[in-house]
Design a protein around this nucleic acid. Structure first.
Lengths: 196, 196
DNA sequence: CTCCATAATCTAGCGCTGCTAGGAACACGC
DNA sequence: GCGTGTTCCTAGCAGCGCTAGATTATGGAG
């Protein structure tokens, strides 16, 4: 039995190697550089080996994205729990989020721009995704008042995502980014929002 | 001289034909279906003709995106000016924006997701882009108070963009979208936001 | 009207992509 | 040590963006 266990262990290890290689290559040269040939060369196996682990290239991207969500959740948690009051917590979480998007553009791409097959906001949602989202819920709930915290978290996340994306793509200037972020924070914290 | 004028007219007409064909193909089957071969077949010319009009495929996408911005500007303007008070104006503009993104996903992709070469927020920014952005500035400025209207417009635009994108990609549920939008509007209108 | 230079267009092909069938090489159980 | 079953690689397909060079159409001159 031990021999099969070893095989499974080796396979799992190799799968992890592929994911890491894809991530590193993407972060170093962008996702365009992540071709199955280059990836295979990097892990020192032939192309078909990749397909024995993943259904296709999209599945590899998805695996990288999942890692990204885990990393993000950890960073958001660290930022949030390092804060004193709720307002500070939301501010730090926001700054951490935008910093993540800005400093790991390829990873962020995998999570939010590339075609991936992840079940969002369903019972099957992976733990890492859930964890990242929960950080948002925790951070916004003190400011939610009579509003549903999850709904507010989604809205705030979306707003941050928009800011991060547009800035990263040069659609809005990097200049005064901090002011925009402060503006967003002020909008979401100053007053309870109770629509309708 | 008239003969050269006719040639130029024909060329301009054909260029427009290419852009329209690309747009229609993208809207019908997504941008993946817009290959130079299929596009050439559709306009009933060979591939090199495309390259006599555009430097590459990205340039065609950019041309489509530019059309998109013009369309969007018109729709935003219509929505905004149909409103009574400033709060209603912002609400209608927001709804129109999200509807645009949702109903013309391929066009919206060209404008905001695909790799295009457009100078945003610079003196060389095309009129269509500027017009769309100006609609945002007009709509938010009544709620800006002591804040820079352009900055607030960028921030609000980004928030809407985030909402539209995440919903379109299934990252947040379509359910309760109206509530999220109302939440966002309430956050940006209820109180003057004066950071720092 | 014919000829010819020039301009416009097409054919064919390059190097690349994601992906896969079929044969070769390996590791394992006996 | 040897069959057997698994693992892996070589080689290739169809399609991609893009382009060099041959081919055809066009418009002015004689």
């Amino acid at each position: 039995m031990s021999i099969q266990a070893r095989k499974e262990r080796d396979r799992a290890q190799r799968e992890k190697l592929i994911i890491t290689a894809a991530r590193e290559l993407a972060e170093a040269e962008g996702w365009d550089a992540v071709t199955t040939r280059r990836l295979a060369e990097r892990v020192e196996y032939s192309q078909p080996v990749l397909y024995s682990h993943f259904k296709g290239k999209d599945a590899i991207t998805t695996a990288v994205a999942l890692e990204g969500f885990a990393d993000m959740a950890a960073e958001l948690r660290a930022a949030r729990t390092a804060a004193g009051d709720p307002a500070d917590a939301l501010a730090r979480l926001s700054a951490a989020y935008v910093a993540f998007a800005d400093q790991r553009p390829a990873l962020y791409d995998a999570m939010f721009s590339r075609k991936v097959n992840l079940p969002f906001a369903t019972p099957q949602t992976p733990a890492a995704l859930r964890a990242a989202f929960d950080e948002f819920v925790e951070a916004v709930s003190p400011h939610a008042h009579d509003t549903d915290a999850a709904l507010l978290a989604e809205t705030f996340w979306a707003a941050l995502h928009g800011l991060a994306m547009l800035m990263r793509d040069g659609r809005i200037p990097r200049e005064h980014h901090d002011l925009r972020l402060a503006l967003l924070l002020a909008s979401f914290t100053h007053r309870p929002a109770s629509p309708t």
